[in-house]
Design a protein around this nucleic acid. Structure first.
Lengths: 227, 227
DNA sequence: TAGATTGTTAATCGATTAACAATC
DNA sequence: TAGATTGTTAATCGATTAACAATC
């Protein structure tokens, strides 16, 4: 597989391709063209072919792509076939929701341990994942290969915990705290999940829609009065 | 406020500005320049001024921006000052995590009701929000102004529930199911939250990093052997 | 006033789309 | 073979950055 510098826009589309290919496989489709994929995803065929071409040649002229083969290629590009290990820190509601609902394994990852400060949780087990004391985290990190940390601790301890993690060699953080970890720890790869950003974007488009409606209504009323 | 067509990229940055301004206010900062904001957010001052200029003139030459005033302006642009009402559908783990942890009100929204099929939940109350039966949802939508729906139902009922919602006038969906609702219901505004997409993006960058390391190691070994 | 920083126009850069030869 | 669809190059479009006059 090629490893040239690929734009973030492309990277963000790859998981969508993967999901769509999974869906096609579930539906027993075994061949797809860039045109069809584009229709399904609301993208142009050109863009899809450009995206794929960043990583190699996965199709066949005059035929298209074999769904299962393309699926494997994209999974591989995204590292979803490397069995990366993840550790969850903070078994509050979000952490718990992830343990209960998010199927790490179906994306090729394995959640190997969870950590919390709550004595009621320590020593228990959710979905086969043991919950350990935060006090044992540092030792754990030294004795185990941890490819990524899922950070779901309360906002106010996000920074100190992150500092501890990076000091202990953690290189990737999937960040569910409401704190932006992007800037500070340069060498650590951080993926921020900000619910509020997502909701506010939605809210913007709702406002836009409502303002348009109001403007239309105002125009209609004015026209009415001018009769 | 201006309402010209603004690119999605700009809209996605606005909530980040809002969060940063909130943080500055918490820290008692009451004045900020585009240069400082840029440093804090990892953006260029140019871009920040360009972004703001899509909506109006919020600064003062030679001085910068008054944090609280700018905060209000951006909140208003995003519709975070309109008291939009939201209804949660599906009180599973994700739904519950949102009810417990996500502070709708701090972003100007109010969660007015929740719905589920589980008899053990129906009639109960979480954080002041009543949980009703799904059977009552349609009636509820007819009798109440619902600006957005938070969709946190299981994957397999996502499509039928969505169809029911749009049929009953719901225009905006904050979608936590793993189904892409983007394409089909054209007039409905959908914001998809896909945990897997986020994780896979992170995974890509982790893989890239590890491949670089491996390549470096291979080169080093080769050099060693050539000694 | 001098220094700072805005809002905006112009220049650059990058991403998307279109077009087409290659070929299955 | 004829039709279809890829991978890739070139053209277009849009987003970011640079520059600077306006002005607090």
């Amino acid at each position: 597989m090629k490893r040239v510098k690929v734009s973030n826009n492309v990277i963000r589309r790859m998981p969508r391709y993967l999901r769509m290919l999974d869906e096609l496989m579930e539906n027993g489709v075994n061949r797809v063209s860039s045109f069809q994929l584009g229709q399904l995803l609301g993208l142009t065929p050109s863009q899809i072919r450009q995206d794929f071409s960043c990583f190699g040649e996965f199709g066949q002229q005059g035929y298209g792509y074999i769904v299962s083969a393309l699926r494997e290629q994209i999974a591989s590009i995204l590292g979803a076939d490397r069995g990366y290990s993840a550790v969850l820190i903070g078994v509050g509601n979000i952490g718990r929701a992830l343990m209960d609902n998010f199927c790490f394994s179906s994306w090729g990852f394995s959640l190997v341990a969870a950590f919390d400060v709550n004595p009621a949780l320590i020593g228990t087990n959710i979905n086969g994942v043991n919950i350990y004391s935060m006090d044992d985290l540092e030792t754990y990190l030294h004795n185990n290969k941890v490819d990524m940390v899922v950070l779901a601790v309360p906002k106010d301890v996000a920074i100190p915990v992150t500092n501890m993690l990076t000091a202990n060699g953690v290189e990737a953080i999937w960040n569910f705290t409401n704190v932006d970890l992007t800037a500070p720890n340069s060498s650590t790869i951080v993926e921020n999940v900000h619910f509020s950003d997502s909701l506010l974007s939605l809210s913007y488009y709702v406002s836009e829609r409502q303002d348009e409606k109001a403007a239309r209504a105002a125009r209609a009323e004015k026209a009415e009065n001018n009769q």
